[in-house]
Design a protein around this nucleic acid. Structure first.
Lengths: 203, 203
DNA sequence: TCGTGGTAACTTACCCAAGAGTCATATAGG
DNA sequence: CCTATATGACTCTTGGGTAAGTTACCACGA
């Protein structure tokens, strides 16, 4: 039977994998794990579904590969900033600045680790936990420093504040996704003004 | 053919609808629109799937009914607080207090309006927009007041800050869901301490 | 230079499970 | 006997996953 194009493209596996991962990350990050279909990724990549299964094994395998690529990127950057000597709010602002400049061209990446539609058991959950914990741990460390400066070392307070901080980053990332024309630099300046308003407006 | 229990329960329609809505709201709020199955709701209610379709027409109809019940509840409360004379951070804290005491027994309700897996077109999207806008508008009003006090009236700044504020509420609600033993009163006191730490720790 | 066979890249057409939605029918009570 | 309440057993679509085959290219011996 005629099978037009079968095997005619000859793209090396690594190149193809990279292309698929880039597209898949964007789809997963934009629509979430559940709402993303493997067929849609294949179509956007201009290839057929089985090729993806051939290279990544399953939808979960594909998501995991996306996580591994994006996770190291984000976690490494946050770790780099954590090794600096900024503390309290200043450390938070520097982390934001790092995220903005790192993710300017792939803002959706942030959402991969906080996707509520991803499986909660199995290898994906493990991988998410790995990176979310790595990110969360650094966040908690920064928050704990801030709280200590204020004389508060209640564990639940720190946990709640960490959750709030991650929520703030999440909100800003989502807002940024919805305002594609905003540059990383503009976002950073905006955050500075918001902070000023917070401290000057009603406290 | 034998159909055990068909029609034997005799529960009045309104009672049954209320029971279904309570269960469905919890499922939708906990797992999201997509991940919730009508069959699961039916099973938890101890009835069959067709009865739900008979009363609510479709899965979307069921979700819409949940939104209508929960939306008025939440939006009314926030509006009540907005009519008070608190401004700036104080208004934010009062809104939080209102949410905590209103939703103590149904914390998942908050998530109904910010469910990323819900349809983005059709009647559901309209209904979500209706309530999310009502809530979002009040949030924006409060944020705008705060910003004005600080001498900032940039529209994008206000929009971003509103998004952050809603993200904060969202984080706190999610954290609360994961800490069922915490009372509304404890949450409120915790928020007070977090605010203190923020202003005392690194600004 | 020319087969020729092995392998990497790739596709069509299918299977199958899950879940939304429907139909025809059954029971109880006024 | 008529209506409201209720159900078992379907259908149909969507989407993850697979079997089996096709094409291009390259190494290698005659």
């Amino acid at each position: 039977m005629a099978r037009p194009n079968a095997g005619t493209k000859g793209v090396p596996r690594l190149d193809r994998e990279t292309q698929i991962l880039t597209i898949a990350s964007e789809e997963f990050g934009t629509y979430g794990f559940t709402a993303t279909s493997v067929a849609a990724v294949a179509q956007r990549a201009g290839i057929s579904k089985p090729l993806i299964y051939n290279y990544f094994g399953s939808k979960e395998g594909l998501y995991e590969a996306c996580l591994d690529r994006g996770g190291s990127l984000v976690a490494d950057e946050i770790e780099r900033i954590a090794r600096g000597d900024a503390v309290g709010i200043e450390r938070g602002m520097q982390t934001l600045a790092g995220m903005f400049s790192l993710l300017e061209e792939q803002r959706y990446l942030w959402r991969l680790f906080f996707d509520s539609t991803a499986p909660t058991t199995g290898p994906i959950a493990d991988s998410i936990t790995l990176y979310a914990d790595r990110i969360g741990k650094l966040a908690e460390e920064g928050v704990a420093e801030l709280m200590t400066l204020a004389g508060n070392d209640d564990e639940l307070d720190i946990a709640a504040m960490t959750s709030v901080w991650l929520g703030i980053v999440d909100s800003l990332m989502n807002w940024w996704v919805e305002h594609p024309e905003q540059t990383a630099e503009q976002m950073m300046q905006r955050c500075g003004r918001l902070l000023t308003a917070l401290f000057g407006g009603g406290g």
